[in-house]
Design a protein around this nucleic acid. Structure first.
Length: 721
DNA sequence: GAGCACTGC
């Protein structure tokens, strides 16, 4: 890939292909001046006309003809647009209005990293175009397809969803334009899509079987230059935004305790600064709840003469009702004519991109967030509190200037901002395990991973690990080619280990149970444990506990939930400290997985006996058959040692596994006060040597207690024959 | 005997 033949002509001055775009412009004017909406054949509504007036005020309108000309004469165009430019809602419309899409024939796609964005933008654009949502304009997200293959000309979808579609249609044949929005966020799916587009574009030129494919990459930051050079010098269009200036302050000295410093700053702002709400960025639930408490206490100390201060926590696991509270207006003055009250929102990164709160004038940024990191040596992802990037810091301060000029207090020195912080965060693809990505790429027909054009190529060791894991699981053969099993695994929206587990579960007669477990594992934490009700929550969980397995404990809770009548479920969840949002999305996942299982001819069988009890051995064997690469062995000192990479780990205190079994398999690593393994199931050496002799190959095994144990197991196996 | 940033299929 690459090379001079892929360079595209840059043309922004109206020469050459500009004629094409002028034709487009004429078409556009004809449509606008008509009274009839060409998409519906009906007259435009009054509402359409009034919305149109506001749309015409958006900065992006100044760039309409430039953009259309650039798209007409180039296959790829990069747009750098700040918040408030209107690029997300207008640019896709410009493209369909000038005829890039034809009902039933071709479609313009616009990708978003998040579901809410895809659905809400689609609804907004349908309104702006005066058409029915789900017809001319639609959206597709997991579990929900509101689009019509015969009518939809503009479709908003999550980047992950487009990647799924590509797996069955690698040339993206139904699309004439793909707009990749929020590309600067560099989600795993966006990065894979960009690499795929690099492969596909040469096969989708004018005159090719499915016609020319255009790509518009939209980014909010200075990173645009990087996108431009990645796409072989595609033209770059800069669209200004509409935001207010934000004054930035730094501390003179580094802060030792950023939570305490953030609390102090919030109180200080309340005392000394003019009206306006405060947004504080912290890293997690614990910190946030603590800070909220301390800010409330600090405000109390100011006495009743000071204006009122209300404090709201914000993080994703907070119930939606509590999340919504952040949008309530700040309290008014305590006395008529007095200074107004103030609102403080203490939030995780969720307020950096996913959620926008109006009225924020002050931002407090300690400069940290929790980030996923991947360690290829021990093959696990974990969360670590890490310094943010300068791009993130700018994004955070920008949150203060959405409604009027604001102030941002960075709790680190200016020198630190320029010298210690990285310009941009590592994209997700450099912080994740690659086994699923590699399987996806193979399914997309990309065989040469080494030369695949990633914008930021993952470390070779990470790719090697992924290939190795997929080979152990039987998804790739020794030549690295996809097996039938691998093709089946790629169909499932799961991590390869879980896919393999599900596909093999009928052999252990428990696919019904495994599909529930897998669904419950793919959603956020189902068991709640609020600090103030910890004991009651533990008691509630105790009724589901299986002393050999957290996975079976999860199954017990999920299966009980399924048996509760729908109308009583919410109450039941509340009474039993179960996260109802989580468990009900587990139900959607299970439904989706069962649909795919039917399609793949994977039988649904249960290990539940006549007595209503599960054959828990069967379930644990099915778990072992796919999870044998994440196994730890008990040491004499009472800790565990992970097999092969010899990490000292401890079973997490929340585990229901009892009595320190000799062998355990585990789902995840949590590096907190100790190296904990979480979601644990007891397994047996006998099963390991039986199911995975290729992995537990003693010739390549470090000397340890586990090895001695395995030698005994192999001897027993020999005797059994 | 302790604490899951955020998405997505």
């Amino acid at each position: 890939m690459g090379g001079p033949d892929r360079k595209r002509k840059i043309n922004l001055d109206g020469n050459g292909d500009g004629d094409l775009s002028r034709k487009h412009q004429d078409a556009l004017h004809a449509r606008r001046s008509s009274e009839i909406n060409p998409w519906t054949g009906r007259a435009y509504s009054q509402r359409y006309q009034s919305i149109l007036q506001t749309r015409l005020q958006l900065p992006v309108y100044q760039f309409q003809s430039q953009l259309l000309e650039a798209v007409a004469s180039n296959q790829t165009v990069v747009v750098e647009g700040e918040t408030g430019s209107g690029k997300t809602t207008q640019i896709p419309q410009f493209l369909v209005e000038v005829g890039y899409a034809m009902p039933g024939k071709s479609c313009v796609a616009c990708t978003q990293p998040r579901r809410v964005a895809a659905t809400s933008i689609a609804a907004r654009v349908a309104e702006e175009m005066d058409v029915t949502l789900g017809k001319t304009v639609g959206y597709t997200i997991r579990f929900e397809d509101v689009s019509d293959p015969n009518e939809t000309v503009l479709k908003f979808l999550t980047d992950g969803m487009l990647l799924r579609e590509a797996m069955n249609d690698p040339l993206l044949s139904r699309y004439s334009v793909i707009v990749l929005d929020e590309a600067h966020e560099r989600t795993l799916a966006t990065d894979v899509l960009m690499g795929l587009l690099m492969e596909v574009l040469p096969d989708r030129t004018r005159g090719s079987k499915y016609g020319e494919l255009k790509v518009v990459v939209m980014s909010a930051t200075l990173d645009a230059e990087k996108f431009r050079s990645y796409f072989n010098g595609a033209p770059l269009l800069k669209v200004p935004g509409r935001t207010y200036p934000v004054e930035v302050f730094y501390t003179a000295e580094p802060e030792r305790n950023y939570v305490e410093a953030a609390v102090r700053t919030a109180i200080q702002i309340h005392k000394c600064e003019g009206p306006g709400d405060i947004l504080v960025f912290l890293t997690g639930e614990q910190e946030i709840e603590q800070a909220c408490e301390e800010i409330r206490l600090g405000a109390q100390d100011m006495g009743h003469d000071a204006p009122e201060l209300v404090v709201y926590p914000l993080y994703s696991s907070l119930p939606p009702a509590q999340q919504k509270k952040i949008f309530t207006a700040a309290p008014g003055p305590r006395v008529v004519g007095g200074p107004p009250g103030r609102k403080v929102v203490v939030s995780t990164n969720i307020a950096e991109t996913s959620l926008t709160i109006d009225g924020i004038v002050y931002v407090i940024d300690p400069g940290f967030s929790k980030q996923k990191v991947y360690n290829p040596r021990i093959r696990v992802e974990s969360l670590l509190v890490s310094p943010i990037s300068r791009a993130s810091a700018r994004q955070r301060s920008g949150r203060a200037g959405r409604t009027r000029p604001g102030k941002c207090f960075r709790l680190y020195t200016e020198q630190s901002f320029y010298n210690d912080l990285q310009e941009t965060s590592y994209p997700e693809i450099l912080r994740s395990k690659m086994s699923n990505v590699v399987l996806t790429l193979k399914k997309l027909g990309i065989d040469d991973l080494v030369h695949f054009d990633f914008m930021d190529p993952p470390a070779p060791e990470t790719l090697m690990r992924a290939l190795e894991v997929l080979n152990y699981l039987g998804a790739l053969d020794d030549e690295g080619d996809m097996t039938d099993l691998g093709r089946q695994m790629a169909e499932l929206p799961l991590d390869p280990q879980l896919s393999k587990m599900l596909i093999c579960s009928p052999e252990y007669n428990c696919s019904e149970e495994i599909v529930s477990i897998v669904a419950a594992m793919s959603v956020p934490q189902i068991f709640l444990r609020p600090r103030e009700n910890a004991k009651a929550a533990d008691e509630a969980k105790a009724q589901f506990v299986d002393a050999t397995s957290d996975h079976i404990t999860l199954l017990n809770a999920y299966a009980t939930y399924e048996g509760i009548p729908t109308s009583e479920r919410k109450q039941w969840c509340w009474d039993n400290f179960i996260n109802d949002r989580s468990i009900s999305s587990a139900e959607s996942v299970k439904k989706q997985l069962k649909g795919i299982m039917t399609r793949l001819d994977i039988p649904l069988v249960t290990c539940k006996g006549g007595n209503g009890r599960y054959d828990t051995n069967a379930i644990r064997m099915a778990l072992t058959s796919a999870m044998y690469m994440q196994v730890a062995h008990l040491q004499r000192q009472g800790s565990y040692l992970t097999v092969k990479d010899n990490q000292i780990v401890y079973i997490h205190p929340s585990s229901s596994v009892d009595g320190k079994p000799q062998w355990v398999l585990f789902e995840e690593f949590a590096l907190t006060s100790k190296n904990y393994i979480r979601t644990v199931t007891t397994t047996r050496g006998e099963w390991l040597v039986e199911m995975a002799p290729h992995y537990f190959d003693l010739d390549n095994f470090p000397e340890c207690e586990a090895k001695d144990e395995l030698i005994l197991e192999y001897k027993k196996k020999m005797r059994r024959g």
